[in-house]
Design a protein around this nucleic acid. Structure first.
Lengths: 198, 198
DNA sequence: TCGTTTACCGCACGACCGTTCGTATCGTAT
DNA sequence: ATACGATACGAACGGTCGTGCGGTAAACGA
């Protein structure tokens, strides 16, 4: 692997993180090892290690980049839709399409990281909690707008619906990974039902 | 640690599996290590290892015992209730109480194992798929009975509701682990809404 | 009571882990 | 041309991993 110019170090990092995300989706962020990652990228362990300074920083960087990727692929494309129900419905379809396409070979990394670190204090647990809160808040905001617009019943509890939508999307990723037939369509029906789908 | 009589070897295994389940709920089944487990139980690595023959067999045994424990704690206590909606509602309460009580310090092991192995073929992935199917089928059966009894709308799709209930229970465990306030009550409201709760 | 079996231990192994360190090579600025 | 910082490498570190092997003492069947 040729050396890169100083201006291109970010490219190396990006390549490493791409591979790290792919592997982590399968084997978890804890399952990442610097040696195997380096071998896959034809780098030396020490060279790769030096880019991050510690395994934990590599894990954090990989997680946050995975969240960025997910946001770009799912959230951003629907950002311009009218807030409220229209955007929510478009988001649901994008979200499930993301999982169905197996954009990451091992499924949703936020869920993976949640499971891995929700009982282990540290920077990773904090990052996971932040990412979840961001997504939950975004969902809740659109649901609230839909309620105010009269598109959802006034009795709707926005936080509850946001929680349920997230739960269903996460479960969809798991069911898809386990090759349960019809999982995507099932999750879509369940999620649609929450936002007034017929 | 004194040697046990031949008839009591099962006790040693049970002790090991108890500790293994507790640890695995926090660090995952992959995070289990024979050395640390042996130290916690004041056993030798080789002694503990001999009980199972391989790490994978230890993982499988721990997982299946965790499912047994969960079934005994959650499913069995409501088994005698009238099938259909009454049993479903009792089950939901038991289920969430189980998570809220932090019966396992790191949350639901079935979810943990699903995330860890859903993209890695092998005996563990198979065991996970089996356990999920059993729970899903049990849920679906009671939902179907509730529909036939007229307690749920005839338009209800039992498999969809089962999927959603499972998704919500799993998400509840994660949210509780992350100390999200009101997670248990929120999950209960969402699950109740699916089975005709007011 | 005496062999046999069972349950477990101590020890060692090869492999791999994250990490450190010294060094070589590149692009860039002087 | 020279100095320098950035980038990556190779070798090695102490540690821990899962796994085998040989022994030993308690429990058991005769």
């Amino acid at each position: 692997m040729p050396r890169r110019s100083a201006a291109a170090v970010a490219d190396t990092r990006a390549d490493v993180l791409d591979a790290a995300i792919r592997r982590a989706s399968i084997e978890g962020l804890e399952g990442l090892t610097i040696g195997r990652l380096a071998e896959e990228l034809s780098m030396s362990k020490s060279g790769l290690f030096g880019l991050f300074g510690s395994k934990e920083e590599l894990q954090v960087a990989a997680f946050e980049r995975a969240v960025e990727d997910f946001t770009r692929e799912v959230w951003q494309p629907v950002a311009r839709r009218p807030a409220g129900l229209p955007r929510l419905r478009a988001l649901i379809d994008r979200w499930l399409a993301y999982h169905r396409s197996r954009a990451l070979p091992g499924g949703c990394i936020v869920t993976t990281a949640t499971i891995e670190f929700d009982a282990r204090p540290g920077p990773l647990r904090d990052a996971v909690a932040r990412a979840r809160r961001r997504m939950h808040d975004a969902l809740e905001a659109d649901i609230r707008i839909a309620v105010e617009a009269g598109d959802l019943p006034a009795s709707t509890n926005p936080a509850d619906v946001a929680f349920a939508l997230y739960a269903l999307a996460s479960a969809a990723s798991q069911a898809i990974q386990l090759d349960e037939p019809g999982a995507g369509a099932r999750a879509r029906r369940c999620m649609r039902a929450l936002v007034g789908g017929a």
